[in-house]
Design a protein around this nucleic acid. Structure first.
Lengths: 147, 147
DNA sequence: ATCAATCATGATAATAATTATCATTATCAT
DNA sequence: ATGATAATGATAATTATTATCATGATTGAT
């Protein structure tokens, strides 16, 4: 859908691949395009079923392997809600974001709050921690589901 | 360890049991005491191995069933980090709290920040959501592990 | 105290998501 | 082209958790 985004993602991916003992693969590009096009938070299974329309030979194991690779090099992110299935989403070039999740329909909205981030730093410092990352998920009911 | 806490917990539990078709069980009290005494974030397996010293007949299924019951009636809480094992902790009478987690040693510190809660409410409202709950986990390195 | 109804439990089978294994195929530097 | 090694598909293995089911415990009515 967004050509620039795909190009930027492949650039990052290629750099990552060339900086370590990895090799090119066409299938990774098919998976990448599907992930970027959907622009949703997908499970590995969902992505697999989308991708199979383009290349029926791609197996579920490759989906998992590839998503891990994408997450390692920063072009996708992972979201796990309460010990259940992990969902993957394009994270390229986006600032770190948190999630607002509708507990009725499952919709996920990305949110950003620099204010919260600062408070988090302070809390960590007060407890002697060096902060590495965080996860903030807000659960509620979206406007559609309130009707 | 803390007798008042145990008494308060059993009161809540008894009320809960009597308010629906449930029956008394001694084993639940053994599990409750172990959970309160440890005062840590335990996996079901960890709690099971602690509890077996008191009553070797308690099986892992009962641990899971009982922890779910405790969480339902508010005397324990659940914490799941990134799709892995769920940990359970005493939540009785504690205000809602977030977690500060050491990524080296696994230590979990409870934190409270009214400021963050308010910002969350605002973010939810801005996106048309009614907020129900949230989960905030900060990942970092604790003072011990920085040495 | 007895009894019947039904909840609680232990052992274990089942499930679901993810990862590991391994034989085969593709890539890449020479 | 070739040899080394990464990528892949199919599937076995793993892990945490839940469901099943036969048995034992609790409760309320008699």
């Amino acid at each position: 859908m967004n050509k620039d985004e795909f190009t930027r993602a492949t650039d990052i991916l290629n750099d990552y691949i060339q900086s370590r003992p990895l090799k090119y693969s066409e299938k990774r590009l098919v998976i990448l395009r599907a992930l970027l096009d959907s622009n949703r938070h997908l499970t590995a299974e969902e992505l697999h079923s989308i991708v199979k329309d383009k290349d029926a030979s791609i197996g579920i194991a490759t989906i998992y392997r590839t998503l891990r690779l994408f997450t390692e090099c920063g072009i996708s992110g992972e979201l796990t809600l309460d010990g259940s299935t992990t969902r993957y989403y394009p994270a390229l070039g986006k600032a770190h974001h948190d999630h607002l999740i509708c507990i009725k329909c499952g919709k996920v909205v990305n949110i950003v709050s620099p204010g919260i981030e600062k408070t988090q730093e302070k809390l960590a410092r007060e407890n002697g921690f060096t902060l590495e990352s965080h996860r903030l998920d807000l659960f509620g009911i979206c406007s559609d589901c309130q009707k």
